[in-house]
Amino acid sequence: MQKGLELPFLGFGAGLRHEHFDDFLKHKNQVIQWVEVVTENFLPWEDEVPRYPYKILESIRKDFPVVFHGVSLSIGSVDPISPSYLKRWKQLISEFNPAWVSDHLCWTGVKNEKLHDLFPLPYSNEALSWVVERISRVQEFLGRRILIENVSSYVSFSDDEMTEWDFLAEVAKRSDCGILLDVNNIYVSSRNHGFDPLDYLKAIPKDRVGQIHVAGHTDKGDHCIDTHDHPVCDSVWDLYRWAAKNLPEVSAMIEWDDRIPTLERLEEEVSKLKRIWKEENDRKSSSKFVEATIGL
């Protein structure tokens, strides 16, 4: 159990992609303990007609805990949040009862245009108040807390008045939301903006972190791109190692969204999460917590 947010410890999971639907339905998965699904792939169409993958999700959730991860809430946009989106999201939550739900600390479009990408915010006091108020309203509408994830970024803005990590910590504190900490995004941004990723990790309030993302990226030498199409690199595993040691009650998962590997290859990455977690926590103590939570 994650004490601050009181979320269950689900262990080690992965993003569920349609390439693996059949593997999951045929119970081939032996390692992955829980799955994260992209909210938008399961929302009814905008005209509210239901979508077929519903049936698949209904079967999979009988065997695995499910969490929902959105990509289009656009919490930082100055556009109004779509009431239809919120309504359909809330309905999906009530039908599937996910362990938690999340989206990103970003904006995805403006002036009613959706660009289907995650743009960073300026880390200003104005943006901070704006985002805090919007998260609070979303949480009030859903009747539950949401987790907000740090995104990778390639630009920063001259309006910045604080660091990204101070901004994120303040958002979580003021809006009483949780944090989905993506250690790969921290790494990618640290390379693109020249900060120390450990400064970021150490500044995040531990009691606010509800989930961890670990993923691969593309290293272009003078910058990195968050592609989720590679195995996790050593530097990102090191950041996860820090998280496993310092946030042992937080569920972690692998995101692999492009050039999707076989289920077996994905399981290897998830096994590595588990191994690192065990190494860090065995080393730290022999407490019963380790065995009880990880089921080893």
């Binding site: 930082g76 946009s77 403006v110 002036k111 660009l115």
Partner: peptide
Amino acid sequence: NHPQNLSKLQSDFK
């Protein structure tokens, strides 16, 4: 409290 600066930034960036 519509955020003027954020509004302009998002529109220019888009």
